[in-house]
């Protein structure tokens, strides 16, 4: 386990974006500090005392967390601890599950996204989501898949070809598909499909991106490509990623939040800089989990 913490410490020193040969937006990265995770009402995404229920089942209890802008926050914890539930709360996908309920506040740039005046489709446009299983629309071509978002959300696009190339490039897929944009989205490999789904989410130019175990169905090579994509994207947007893979959390995230359920509702045990979570966690249960003693 020390291995991955060392690995992360290295990528701390050589910033991941610089490895890619890109100049970084510096502010948040140089200023990485566990205090950033405290609820402070500043811009970006923030949750306050959030609970979630499915029918009578209390799935998540009293979570408060701030996601610093232009960083990657990893949500880790064993299955059933409420990570995915928490993630879906952040862009109002939670309410699509029958009998789902919530309490608390989710603030996006200071605005409560669950207040009645807010149009949830508008929120989902600004906070994109990538799911566990690659889910391109099978009835659409690669190009149509990327442009599906603006079409669904009724956003006018000035230059479709430019947007298409831009999104696919940022998702790291352009070179592989530029000659077959008219092929079906489901003709791609699993890893390519997932990057297509990322490109599709980017087409709406979201301010934040939520990823729910985006690599769990992918082979190691594709996983690496998706991780590179995530690190690149974090220069311009806030990213929250649920992952079961500790190495992945160590590789891509700046901050980590550890969730755990002790039979009752899932709770946030602690949130800290990823380096601290892996090398010097504040809670014994976190140490046990990241070192593979349970979960």
């Amino acid at each position: 386990m020390n291995e991955s913490s060392i690995q992360k410490t290295e990528s701390e020193m050589i910033l991941p974006g610089i490895q890619q040969g890109v100049t970084m937006a510096t502010e948040d990265h140089t200023n990485r500090n566990a205090d950033n995770l405290q609820v402070n009402g500043s811009t970006g995404l923030e949750v306050r005392n959030v609970h979630a229920w499915f029918n009578k089942h209390h799935a998540l209890a009293d979570v408060s967390l701030h996601f610093p802008q232009n960083t990657v926050t990893g949500l880790i914890g064993p299955s059933g601890c409420g990570k995915s539930t928490f993630l879906r709360l952040l862009n109002r996908m939670h309410e699509f599950i029958p009998k789902a309920a919530m309490a608390g506040e989710v603030l996006f740039n200071g605005e409560d996204i669950y207040s009645p005046e807010v149009d949830p489709t508008e929120i989902r446009k600004r906070i994109g989501m990538v799911f566990q299983k690659p889910n391109p629309f099978p009835s659409m071509t690669i190009a149509e898949n990327v442009l599906a978002g603006p079409k669904l959300a009724k956003v006018k696009v000035e230059n479709k070809d430019e947007l298409l190339e831009d999104c696919l490039t940022r998702a790291g897929l352009w070179k592989e598909v530029k000659d077959r944009l008219k092929a079906s989205g489901s003709s791609l490999s699993g890893g390519q499909q997932q990057r297509l789904c990322i490109a599709r989410a980017l087409a709406l130019n979201p301010e934040a991106l939520l990823l729910d175990e985006p690599c769990s169905a992918l082979d190691p090579g594709s996983t690496l490509r998706v991780e590179e994509t995530i690190v690149q994207l974090s220069q311009t947007m806030t990213i929250v990623i649920v992952t079961h893979n500790m190495q992945q959390a160590a590789r891509v995230s700046d901050y980590c939040a550890f969730f755990l359920s002790d039979g009752g509702p899932g709770q946030l045990v602690e949130a800290d800089l990823t380096t601290n979570i892996f090398s010097n966690p504040g809670d014994q249960r976190t140490a046990d989990y990241v070192q593979g003693r349970f979960g």
Binding site: M93, E122, K125, N135, P136, S139, M140, L152
Partner: peptide, 26 residues
């Protein structure tokens, strides 16, 4: 498929949008 309907919603689609882009072609 539920995951494709979720994808449509996740892209800021309305219910009718999800039905038209996922359910009906399916």
């Amino acid at each position: 498929p539920r995951d494709q309907i979720d994808a449509a919603y996740g892209l800021g689609g309305t219910k009718w949008g999800a039905i038209r882009s996922v359910v009906m072609p399916f």
